[in-house]
Amino acid sequence: MRIGSVISILMKTHQSNSPITVGLFVTCLADLIRPQVAFAAVSLLESAQCEVRVPRGQSCCGQPALNSGDRANSIEIAKQVITEFSDVDYVVVPSGSCADTLKNKYPTLFSKDMRWARRAQKLADKTWELTKFLFEKVELKGIDAALDGVCTYHDSCTGLRELLIYEQPRELLKQVKGLRLKELKDSNVCCGFGGLFSLKYSDISTHLVSDKCTEICNSDADMVLGGDLGCLLNIAGRLRRDNKKARVFHIAEVLAGMTDGPAIGDPEESE
């Protein structure tokens, strides 16, 4: 034990001289629907001198099972994520709700299994939502992005209430040249996504996203930004159906200067 702890101290000293390693938890929505969000996250983390790793054995954080009350399957998925991300210094997630799953939900799954409970806690302790990590942990300065236009921001519920993400994205956006942020009325009210909720209770979900889109239109912003792709797909889907003008981007895309291509739900350039 003694020797072990000496070695771990030595390793920590060694680590402090090398760049910190960040495991990117891509999230299934970014992976499948909007890869640019993940590329943007990589670019931002690298500009903050992090060594980014993308473990291949990842897919989904398990929210669909967890939020359906399916603990057994949630545990299986959690074990896989814990294992895949065991050897990085930090885990960074470009989504408040997925980050919350790793950080606050996994540790509650292993009340009867101390070994896994410890491992889950270790993962929890090193997991960060992207904007929180960039602003608080690595204090990213000198973002080299420009965007001429008025943006508004939707605060996704889980990030806002469980991880207290509010000023971090706003502070980071201040560094984007030309961007003017106009606050959205009721920016802290749910957009009606809620994962499977949007399919199971689509009438209610539609009502909520309509309210959200009305406020977005009232704000007269050119763009609406957010930190959770689920909400953004919901909002973009509704705006596109109603042929509203506001374009939708994930905040990582804006911070990384990747807004030249089509916004979420917009036609491809060649069209």
Binding site: L32, P35, Q58, S202, T206, R238, R240, R241
Partner: peptide
């Protein structure tokens, strides 16, 4: 349908991030 009756569904990428990466 619960989604697409009232909303468009943004089209996924041609190739997933992990496959591109």
């Amino acid at each position: 349908r619960g989604w697409t009756d009232t909303r468009d569904f943004p089209v996924p990428s041609r190739k997933s991030f992990l496959r591109q990466w």
